[in-house]
């Protein structure tokens, strides 16, 4: 099946099996390895990318459904000021340990703040509840999001 979509702001036309996972397309065909496979079943959020600005688990997205969509991965998002604010917030909070969950949390944070620039603690917890982290115990990530909101005030 022929599919046109936008990847990191560039238009692409590809020939692909519609059941092929977006995760594999990004990692295998485009070499975008910021996208991680932690479970392959929509439970861990390590594979989160933005589809039209919203977080999706790319392991659950078949390529057949990305027609005309804008996909953004961390490779592109890290060029933005919003990313800089998240990076600074996460670093200062000590939100990164093994790092395998980290790209997913960064993208989920962007999606969360994009929809709700001023979330409460509860809303942050809920907004990130699709992302698993086994190292940090989450509180330091939540703190990172709050620091990012401060540092990036006005960006979202």
């Amino acid at each position: 099946m022929k599919i046109e979509f936008y990847l990191n702001n560039d238009p692409h036309e590809i020939e692909v099996d519609p059941a092929y996972r977006l995760l594999d397309l990004l990692r295998e065909d485009f070499g975008l390895t910021s996208v991680k496979e932690g479970c392959g079943e929509g439970e861990c959020g390590a594979c989160i990318v933005l589809m039209n600005g919203l977080a999706v688990n790319s392991c659950l997205v078949p390529c057949g459904s990305i027609l005309g969509k804008h996909i953004i991965t961390l490779e592109e998002f890290r060029k933005t000021d919003r990313y800089e604010a998240i990076e600074k917030g996460f670093m200062d909070a000590g939100a990164v340990q093994c790092g395998f969950c980290t790209p997913g949390f960064v993208m989920a944070t962007e999606s969360l703040l994009n929809q709700n620039p001023d979330p409460t603690d509860e809303e942050i917890r809920e907004g990130l509840s699709g992302n698993l982290c086994r190292c940090t115990g989450y509180n330091l990530i939540i703190k990172g999001v709050k620091l990012a909101m401060e540092k990036g005030a006005g960006l979202w």
């Binding site: 990692r27 991680k36 490779e75 890290r78 990076e87 996460f90 670093m91 990164v96 790092g99 790209p103």
Partner: peptide, 19 residues
């Protein structure tokens, strides 16, 4: 002090075996 590996991990540049 800042962790030396945090930035690359945040940027998604760190390579794990599957990468």
């Amino acid at each position: 002090i800042p962790r030396s590996d945090a930035k690359a991990k945040l940027r998604g540049e760190t390579k794990y075996i599957a990468d």
